[in-house]
């Protein structure tokens, strides 16, 4: 849960998000979405610092950080994306695709490399197109499609692209975040698991 102190600020940000989405300013809305999530991570890290746990300098959406994202925030953001896009974009669309694949495709994570990417990346259109054939590298962020012609679940995407430079390099990127790297399945799964856990809230 977000502390009440940040609630007024959050409300403002969320209404701005709504505004951008209604104007179909998808890229700006995506950037704001990533910022909201990172703010939440920063807030959690501050809370952990008070508990004496050593914090990271800059917030990143690591698997652990994603697993602790506030359900309320995720649902609020998802709600606005869904409304503006008629269910085309948003976390729910992504979770739906992911959960469906989880049930139908027996994917071996050890094979998650540039040649055999997880089918999710292909489905949401995050893979680089080389001679009309997808390969296991993700697009550079600038190359994503910021309109409703994009595949379902294509956005929001920046939350996934923002990674530490070192990690980007490790994964074959060129300090371009997730762009040019093969997808980090753990982070993707963490977000999806987080979303599905939030659905179980109170149940």
């Amino acid at each position: 849960m977000l502390a009440s102190a940040t609630n007024s600020g959050l409300e403002e940000d969320l209404s701005e998000l709504s505004l951008l989405l209604n104007e179909e300013a998808w890229e700006e809305a995506d950037r704001l979405t990533a910022d909201l999530l990172l703010d939440a991570v920063a807030y959690n890290q501050n809370a952990m610092r008070l508990q004496g746990v050593s914090p990271r300098q800059r917030p990143y959406l690591t698997t652990e950080a994603v697993a602790a994202l506030p359900c309320q925030l995720l649902q609020a953001i998802d709600d606005r994306w869904q409304r503006a896009s008629g269910g085309h974009f948003g976390f729910s669309a992504q979770l739906q695709i992911y959960a469906n694949l989880l049930e139908t495709v027996d994917f071996d994570p050890d094979l998650n490399n540039w040649s055999t990417p997880h089918p999710f990346f292909e489905d949401v259109g995050w893979l680089m197109l080389v001679a009309l054939r997808p390969v296991g590298f993700l697009r550079f962020y600038n190359w994503l499609e910021f309109d409703l012609d994009a595949p379902r679940g294509h956005l929001p995407a920046l939350w996934y692209w923002k990674i530490p430079r070192m990690v980007s390099l490790q994964m074959g990127g060129f300090l371009t975040g997730q762009g040019g790297c093969f997808g980090d399945l753990a982070r993707l799964d963490a977000m999806m698991l987080r979303l599905s856990r939030c659905h179980q809230l109170g149940g």
């Binding site: 994603v66 602790a68 994570p109 998650n112 963490a190 987080r194």
Partner: peptide
């Protein structure tokens, strides 16, 4: 206690 499951 796991943040993710499907990768490992």
């Amino acid at each position: 206690c796991c943040p993710s499951l499907s990768d490992r």
